[in-house]
Design a protein around this nucleic acid. Structure first.
Lengths: 346, 346
DNA sequence: CTGAAAGCGCTTACAG
DNA sequence: CTGAAAGCGCTTACAG
């Protein structure tokens, strides 16, 4: 198979007998009307017959824009980020952009490498779901004045574009809902972490308890044993133990808010094996839909994150930013409480 | 914020007082030892202090290689393809490649657009999970001599690189396993489709039945009502009806092989609501792990597809092909039967 | 209406 | 050991 050189503007120009400039204008529909009909047609025909394909690399070098955006997530194979990836792709395509992705595992070194790679490739902007300790990376982006938007997570001390769930509100309305349904001893199973978006969930929980006159201080709760926090890299056994402790506290909880679906998945399986009745013995609410619990006797009430909208919004904010919209845009998405059997009225 | 022009080789050269050629050699570690130590160091220092970043777009234009590969899948948000995406990424990174993805929804037009985009961007190669009617696309790639590898699916009439599960074997060992466990009336719930990889599953099923002297012909099976096929874009109700028909056939089946986890998910939920006992009333096997069935009374025996290995292999085959390894490589992955409660001995 | 020419930021054969 | 120069394939101000 002889590999023929790819046809270029020059080849078309030669074939038709015009300059490459003219070919470029015609193929890009520029200077419409100011170019002879016949030549234009000839050029188009030649392009077609040569099977011409614009070399976007060459164009990028000249125009200083690649129409490419980079997507950095902890793990593209995680359903949450895979969902984001899809909606980012769709919105990007709609505007002629392509997206390159990379997974960081929340690891600062991997993140740095990935970002370097993407910037060397001259992406026009970045959509990032940052892990812990990514502040330095974000700062360096700001110094380079490279357009970017954070998604799902952000750093409150680093003003930047972001699109994230209003996690505070989400947890707040979850507690509110439990209270309205008659639950009074509401436990929290969450993470011990510096990640702001997760701590917002705790803050929402605490504030709601306070507003509803259930509890007033963190330490008061600790004493009661209603707040359990495991490490992000937890083992299943830790979660099970936490559930047990919530149940066996001085004043046992009558309901639990899980701050992630991973926690809920492990927790519910444990509750299932203990043959507890949900919601009679224990009401449950969690963040995100949890497919693995589809067949649980009492489908879980959960806080839905509008994945598709988040990806779309993030992409729009980024494209705006690329087009030199200099204001910082911060979008706090509304959570939606999907009420199911696990929080039936007491 | 004044946007400063990005530093180029020229800027470094000017600062140090040498030619851009020399800067290029030093930064790329070429001509090692033939370059003065002091100049080399000066150049590196200058690059650092200017915060230099190689413009890969310019390099690509010159070297005619972008170190980028394109990944085309039906839907990046589907767990199967998200998993592939992750392992492709990891293997690609290991070799200095970046990956751009796109979802086709199995739609020929979208596929064509996506491929055009990726080729215009001069990707060095393509990893494709093709949908129905993608033969034309594949052919055009071959004509252009663009390196590519199919993953998960392939066209038997179009010899090309591919990495896929040995679907024939997978279905075969599933039936074998059921027979060994004492099941004799084995039903199939599959798809009505031209997709070769899905039909291979049916072929494996049929051949196994024949080898084990259970059935000899397709029409014989049809008569018995042991083979049910629904359309790919099926409704839940179709699947439920198919399950009912298998159960109420002239000779009711004592076991079912689902050829996908989507079918299994809907089927099992139906079986669950019918309060049938698994495996006593009905043994079940399906393709792929099905998270949503985690809490089902009898966890399903399933055929595991080695996702990570498939993505990795596909990437290796592609990189080989990019490096002008001209032979066609076809990898048929071994399925693994994960035995769980749903096929306990009769 | 059309063309000659510069230039984007690199790499690399060639010359010295 | 180092540099001058061509060229990758485009776009686009400028001139006519």
């Amino acid at each position: 198979m002889s590999v023929v050189k790819k046809p270029s503007l020059k080849d078309i120009a030669a074939k038709v007998g015009v300059s490459t400039a003219l070919v470029s204008y015609v193929l890009n529909n520029q200077k419409q009307g100011r170019i002879g009909q016949e030549v234009a047609q000839k050029i188009r025909d030649a392009a077609l017959s040569l099977n011409y394909r614009t070399n976007l690399i060459a164009r990028s070098l000249k125009t200083n824009s690649t129409l490419t955006i980079g997507l950095m997530v902890p793990d593209i194979s995680h359903p949450f980020f895979a969902g984001i990836a899809r909606s980012v792709e769709d919105e990007a395509n709609r505007h002629g952009y392509t997206v390159c992705y990379g997974s960081t595992d929340g690891n600062p070194l991997r993140s740095r490498h990935l970002m370097d790679m993407l910037l060397n490739r001259q992406v026009d902007g970045l959509i990032i779901a940052p892990g812990e300790h990514a502040e330095m990376l974000i700062k360096s982006l700001q110094e380079q004045a490279l357009p970017f938007v954070l998604v799902d997570r952000y750093y409150p001390d680093l003003p930047s574009n972001y699109v994230a769930l209003d996690n505070y509100k989400a947890a707040y309305i979850a507690v509110q809902h439990l209270v309205e349904r008659g639950y009074k001893r509401i436990g929290l199973l969450g993470y011990e972490t510096p990640l702001h978006h997760l701590n917002e969930r705790k803050r929402g929980y605490l504030t709601a308890l306070k507003d509803y006159k259930i509890a007033f201080t963190n330490s008061w709760l600790k004493e009661k044993g209603w707040v359990k926090e495991v490490s992000i890299a937890n083992k299943k056994i830790e979660i099970e133990r936490a559930v047990d402790e919530l149940r066996l506290a001085r004043e046992p909880v009558d309901s639990i808010l899980f701050t992630s679906n991973r926690l809920a998945a492990a927790g519910v399986k444990h509750i299932h094996s203990l043959r507890l009745n949900v919601p009679e013995d224990l009401a449950l609410v969690c963040f995100d839909e949890t497919e693995s619990l589809d067949l649980f006797q009492a489908p879980l009430t959960y806080l839905r994150q509008p994945l598709a909208e988040m990806g779309q919004q993030a992409t729009r904010v980024l494209l705006d930013s690329i087009r030199k919209n200099n204001k910082i845009i911060q979008v706090n998405m509304e959570p939606e409480l999907v009420i199911r059997k696990s929080t039936l009225k007491k």
